[in-house]
C-alpha cells in the first residue's frame, strides 16, 4: 500500500469517527480486524465442541476439536504425512506451471491470430463449459496411477481462468490508449511493450489466484480417483477406515496449502502492480 493510500484510508476512518463523535474502538484500531476474525474462529471451535459434547451428531461422523488437533499433530510430527504433502504440492505446482505457460501461449495466439481464434473458439467454449473433473477417471486410465493424471487435470483446471484473461488482456485495450500510442509514433513492438503487455498483466494477475486454487482442486480430485500417495489419497484412506478426525486434520492442511498459494500469488502480484485498479 502506498503512502497516499494509507493517508486516504486514515482520513476516511477519522472522518467517520468525527461524524458520529464516538471513539468506537473497532473504528480506530489497526488490530480490530484481526481480533474480530480470531473471535469468529474461537466461536466456531466453541460451537463445534458443544455440538460434539451434546452429541448433536454421531461421534462416528463428527470428531471433537481436540481429537482433530491431536490427529493433526500425530500426522505432522509423526512424519507420516510429509511425503504425501510433498507429492500434492509438487503435483499442484507442476499443474499450475503447465496451465500457466499453456494459457499464456495459447491465449496470446488467440489474441493475435484471428484465424486461430475463429477456428478454435467454438471448441474452447465447449471445453470451458464442460465439467472438466468428469474426465479424471479417463485420464487415470490413460496416464496411469502416477503423478501425470493429477498434473493433467490440475493443469486443465488452472488453464482456463488464465487463458480467458490473457485473451481479454491483449484484446480489450482502450481505443484512446491505442490512438495515444500511435500519436506517439510507437511501432508494433513499442505498443506491445508499453501498452499491450502491461495491460494484459493487469488482467492476468487476478486470474492467478483462481488458477492456483483450481490446480489444487484438480490434483485432489485426481488423487481421489486413483493414487497411492498424496493428500487426496490420505483423505480417502482415513474416511474408509472411519478415522474422521484424521479426515478433518487433512482438510486443515489442505486449507493451509490453499491459503499459502493464495498469499504467494497475492505477494507476487503486489510486487508487480503497485497501482490499484
Amino acid at each position: 500500500m502506498s503512502l497516499q493510500q494509507e493517508e486516504k484510508v486514515e482520513t476516511a476512518a477519522l472522518g467517520k469517527v468525527g461524524a458520529n463523535q464516538r471513539n468506537r474502538w473497532w473504528a480506530r484500531s489497526r488490530w480490530a480486524p484481526v481480533v474480530l476474525a480470531a473471535a469468529v474462529l474461537v466461536l466456531v471451535v466453541v460451537v463445534w465442541q458443544i455440538a460434539y459434547a451434546a452429541r448433536f451428531a454421531s461421534r462416528l461422523v463428527l470428531p471433537s476439536p481436540g481429537n482433530t488437533v491431536a490427529s493433526l499433530g500425530r500426522g505432522l510430527f509423526g512424519g507420516e504425512w510429509w511425503p504425501h504433502i510433498q507429492v500434492t504440492l509438487i503435483e499442484t505446482l507442476a499443474a499450475f506451471a503447465i496451465g500457466l505457460v499453456a494459457a499464456l501461449v495459447i491465449g496470446s495466439l488467440f489474441a493475435f491470430l484471428p484465424l486461430v481464434r475463429k477456428t478454435f473458439y467454438p471448441y474452447v467454449i465447449a471445453i470451458q463449459t464442460f465439467p472438466k473433473i468428469a474426465i479424471a477417471p479417463l485420464l487415470v486410465t490413460w496416464l496411469g496411477y502416477g503423478l501425470a493424471p493429477k498434473i493433467a487435470i490440475g493443469a486443465l483446471l488452472a488453464f482456463f481462468p488464465i487463458f480467458t484473461n490473457t485473451v481479454a488482456g491483449f484484446t480489450e485495450v482502450d481505443k484512446d490508449e491505442l490512438d495515444l500510442m500511435r500519436s506517439l509514433r510507437a511501432g508494433w513492438r513499442k505498443q506491445l511493450r508499453y501498452l499491450l503487455v502491461p495491460n494484459a498483466v493487469t488482467y492476468i494477475f487476478p486470474a492467478l489466484n483462481v488458477a492456483a486454487v483450481n490446480a489444487l482442486l484438480g490434483v485432489i480430485v485426481g488423487e481421489f480417483v486413483g493414487a497411492q500417495e498424496g493428500l487426496g489419497y490420505i483423505i480417502q484412506q482415513k474416511a474408509f477406515l472411519g478415522d474422521i478426525a484424521g479426515v478433518f486434520a487433512v482438510l486443515i492442511i489442505l486449507a493451509a496449502i490453499g491459503l499459502g498459494l493464495f498469499f504467494i500469488v497475492k505477494f507476487v502480484e503486489s510486487r508487480f502492480t503497485k497501482f490499484s485498479r
Binding site: 484512446d176 500519436s183 508499453y194 493487469t202
Partner: peptide, 24 residues
C-alpha cells in the same frame, strides 16, 4: 494529442505517465 479522457496508463505513476512520450 490530448484526449477527452485523460488516457493515463493505470500501471504507471503520474511522473512515468508524463515521461511516456520519451520512453516510447
Amino acid at each position: 494529442f490530448v484526449f477527452q479522457k485523460p488516457t493515463l496508463l493505470r500501471w504507471r505513476s503520474i511522473q512515468d505517465n508524463v515521461l511516456l512520450p520519451l520512453d516510447v
